[in-house]
Deep mutational scan, measured.
Amino acid sequence: MQRVNMIMAESPGLITICLLGYLLSAECTVFLDHENANKILNRPKRYNSGKLEEFVQGNLERECMEEKCSFEEAREVFENTERTTEFWKQYVDGDQCESNPCLNGGSCKDDINSYECWCPFGFEGKNCELDVTCNIKNGRCEQFCKNSADNKVVCSCTEGYRLAENQKSCEPAVPFPCGRVSVSQTSKLTRAETVFPDVDYVNSTEAETILDNITQSTQSFNDFTRVVGGEDAKPGQFPWQVVLNGKVDAFCGGSIVNEKWIVTAAHCVETGVKITVVAGEHNIEETEHTEQKRNVIRIIPHHNYNAAINKYNHDIALLELDEPLVLNSYVTPICIADKEYTNIFLKFGSGYVSGWGRVFHKGRSALVLQYLRVPLVDRATCLRSTKFTIYNNMFCAGFHEGGRDSCQGDSGGPHVTEVEGTSFLTGIISWGEECAMKGKYGIYTKVSRYVNWIKEKTKLT
């Protein structure tokens, strides 16, 4: 034993070699072989497995989906700052455009905790909710729209109204504003409101030439003092309507412009014939205590009207009353817009006519005020429907199939267009061939041609 100890002390290297040989010859039971080890760690190889990531292109799944990435790591994937920024906006807080917040056709661009709407022409605001041009839906104005110097929408209202708090709607500024039905039992019968379409306001006024200088022999019209197929109006439903009495009662109609003036057809009036105007009328054979009678003290036909040349060209006249009318729910003026808007309103496509005229061709006159909704007829169809001249200051309205029309005794009465609950004068009943005849239409004086003249002559002093 002493000898062994001496050998170990003198030859430590020998001992180490012996131990190493023993270990190498022993069977290893701690580690699995290569094949079995792979069965336990069965993990798919990654895209760049075996390579240094710093030297390969980034992978979106590896960089940002398996674990949260930084902007720089995302930049490695896209290799483009702009594309990385677009991805980053949604990656950080989701897609803010998912709810489609942009209105009126706006395009949404996502941002971090926010979004941006790219608005089409005519709109602005956070969600493109603000109209900035009158060309689109009248700028959301209830009545009139004008573009300011910086191309912003400025709404306005006709006389007797003021802008509401929203700067879009119009509200009454006087007790009985024009064009409004205020009798409670008839307010439910107000005709369907007309909503502004998209309009090209630059070209809204037709490029028409008034044929002022045409000389033409007097034409022989049949029954051209021209509501057939209409309905009984309720008291106060058309408070701007008046009836004219002269040699015979209810020979023509008219509309209240203001307390002192009536507008009617020029062919209705004769110099030297006494005319009485009755406002607030409903049943011409009954006294309903809503009527107001006034005498006409002055007749002003349009300066281009000449019955000797043509009885229905420039067929418009103004009547001055001896005493002002007292405005109330049964006696209310009709609204008159400017030339541009009167023309736009007419193009809405349908209007209402009213009167006490004959209820059928050569038949009896109506006792109760009649009204009828009539569609506008395109000019080409209008011209083809008659052998008589249709001037540019006239328009056609009615039904091709016949059966409904204005008729004798309705002449001078109103053709009105309702705009968001307020009625505007767009025409004056003038003439036609018979009444409600198939293929024939009622012919009306186009008020847009005469609004400046009306307003100039009827100013209240």
Score class of each variant (00 low, 15 high):
residue 2 Q to V: 13
residue 3 R to H: 07
residue 9 A to F: 13
residue 10 E to T: 09
residue 11 S to G: 12
residue 12 P to L: 15
residue 15 I to N: 03
residue 16 T to E: 04
residue 19 L to R: 02
residue 19 L to M: 07
residue 20 L to N: 03
residue 22 Y to W: 14
residue 25 S to F: 12
residue 25 S to E: 05
residue 26 A to V: 10
residue 27 E to C: 05
residue 28 C to A: 11
residue 28 C to Q: 04
residue 29 T to F: 09
residue 32 L to I: 12
residue 32 L to H: 15
residue 33 D to N: 07
residue 33 D to L: 10
residue 33 D to M: 11
residue 34 H to T: 13
residue 37 A to R: 02
residue 41 L to G: 15
residue 42 N to V: 13
residue 48 N to M: 13
residue 49 S to I: 09
residue 49 S to T: 13
residue 49 S to R: 07
residue 49 S to N: 15
residue 53 E to V: 09
residue 53 E to H: 10
residue 53 E to G: 13
residue 54 E to D: 14
residue 58 G to L: 07
residue 58 G to V: 15
residue 60 L to H: 15
residue 66 E to R: 10
residue 69 C to W: 02
residue 72 E to H: 15
residue 72 E to F: 15
residue 73 E to Y: 07
residue 75 R to T: 15
residue 77 V to K: 14
residue 86 E to M: 15
residue 91 Y to A: 15
residue 94 G to R: 10
residue 95 D to I: 04
residue 98 E to P: 02
residue 101 P to H: 03
residue 103 L to W: 04
residue 106 G to F: 00
residue 106 G to V: 01
residue 110 D to G: 05
residue 110 D to F: 04
residue 110 D to T: 06
residue 112 I to V: 13
residue 113 N to D: 10
residue 113 N to M: 07
residue 117 C to I: 00
residue 119 C to K: 01
residue 122 G to V: 02
residue 126 K to G: 06
residue 128 C to Q: 02
residue 128 C to R: 01
residue 130 L to I: 10
residue 130 L to N: 10
residue 131 D to H: 15
residue 136 I to C: 03
residue 137 K to S: 11
residue 141 C to A: 00
residue 142 E to V: 06
residue 142 E to H: 06
residue 143 Q to N: 01
residue 144 F to S: 00
residue 145 C to W: 01
residue 146 K to C: 05
residue 147 N to R: 06
residue 147 N to C: 05
residue 147 N to H: 11
residue 148 S to A: 08
residue 148 S to V: 07
residue 148 S to P: 06
residue 158 T to M: 10
residue 158 T to K: 02
residue 160 G to D: 07
residue 161 Y to A: 01
residue 167 Q to C: 05
residue 169 S to H: 06
residue 172 P to A: 11
residue 174 V to I: 09
residue 181 V to F: 05
residue 184 S to L: 13
residue 187 S to V: 10
residue 187 S to M: 11
residue 188 K to I: 12
residue 189 L to N: 13
residue 196 F to P: 11
residue 198 D to Q: 13
residue 201 Y to C: 07
residue 207 A to D: 08
residue 208 E to D: 12
residue 208 E to V: 09
residue 211 L to M: 13
residue 212 D to R: 11
residue 216 Q to F: 09
residue 216 Q to N: 09
residue 216 Q to S: 13
residue 218 T to K: 11
residue 218 T to S: 12
residue 219 Q to M: 12
residue 220 S to E: 12
residue 221 F to T: 08
residue 223 D to S: 11
residue 225 T to N: 13
residue 225 T to A: 09
residue 226 R to K: 10
residue 227 V to I: 12
residue 228 V to D: 08
residue 229 G to W: 14
residue 230 G to M: 07
residue 234 K to E: 12
residue 238 F to G: 02
residue 247 K to E: 09
residue 251 F to N: 07
residue 255 S to P: 00
residue 257 V to N: 01
residue 257 V to E: 00
residue 258 N to A: 04
residue 263 V to Y: 00
residue 265 A to I: 01
residue 268 C to M: 01
residue 269 V to Y: 04
residue 270 E to Q: 12
residue 271 T to E: 12
residue 272 G to R: 11
residue 273 V to H: 12
residue 275 I to L: 11
residue 276 T to P: 01
residue 277 V to P: 00
residue 277 V to F: 01
residue 284 I to L: 14
residue 288 E to G: 06
residue 288 E to I: 05
residue 289 H to T: 11
residue 293 K to F: 10
residue 293 K to W: 10
residue 301 P to A: 10
residue 308 A to K: 11
residue 308 A to Y: 10
residue 311 K to G: 05
residue 311 K to I: 07
residue 312 Y to D: 02
residue 314 H to M: 02
residue 315 D to F: 01
residue 315 D to N: 10
residue 315 D to W: 01
residue 317 A to N: 00
residue 317 A to W: 00
residue 324 P to C: 03
residue 325 L to A: 00
residue 325 L to H: 02
residue 327 L to N: 00
residue 327 L to V: 08
residue 334 I to P: 01
residue 337 A to D: 00
residue 340 E to F: 11
residue 341 Y to I: 05
residue 342 T to F: 00
residue 342 T to I: 02
residue 344 I to C: 04
residue 345 F to D: 01
residue 346 L to S: 03
residue 348 F to G: 13
residue 349 G to I: 02
residue 350 S to L: 14
residue 356 W to S: 03
residue 358 R to M: 08
residue 359 V to F: 13
residue 361 H to F: 09
residue 363 G to V: 07
residue 367 L to R: 14
residue 374 V to F: 02
residue 375 P to N: 14
residue 376 L to Q: 06
residue 378 D to E: 11
residue 378 D to Q: 09
residue 378 D to C: 03
residue 378 D to Y: 03
residue 379 R to C: 07
residue 383 L to I: 09
residue 384 R to V: 07
residue 386 T to L: 09
residue 386 T to N: 11
residue 391 Y to I: 06
residue 401 E to T: 12
residue 403 G to P: 15
residue 405 D to Q: 14
residue 412 G to N: 04
residue 412 G to M: 10
residue 413 G to A: 13
residue 414 P to A: 09
residue 415 H to Y: 10
residue 416 V to K: 01
residue 418 E to W: 06
residue 418 E to K: 11
residue 420 E to G: 15
residue 422 T to V: 13
residue 423 S to L: 11
residue 423 S to R: 11
residue 427 G to H: 01
residue 427 G to A: 02
residue 429 I to D: 08
residue 429 I to Y: 14
residue 431 W to E: 09
residue 432 G to T: 14
residue 433 E to Y: 07
residue 441 Y to W: 04
residue 441 Y to E: 00
residue 441 Y to P: 12
residue 442 G to Q: 14
residue 443 I to P: 02
residue 444 Y to Q: 01
residue 445 T to A: 05
residue 446 K to I: 00
residue 446 K to H: 05
residue 447 V to R: 00
residue 447 V to F: 00
residue 448 S to Q: 05
residue 449 R to T: 12
residue 451 V to Q: 03
residue 453 W to M: 01
residue 460 L to I: 07
residue 461 T to S: 14
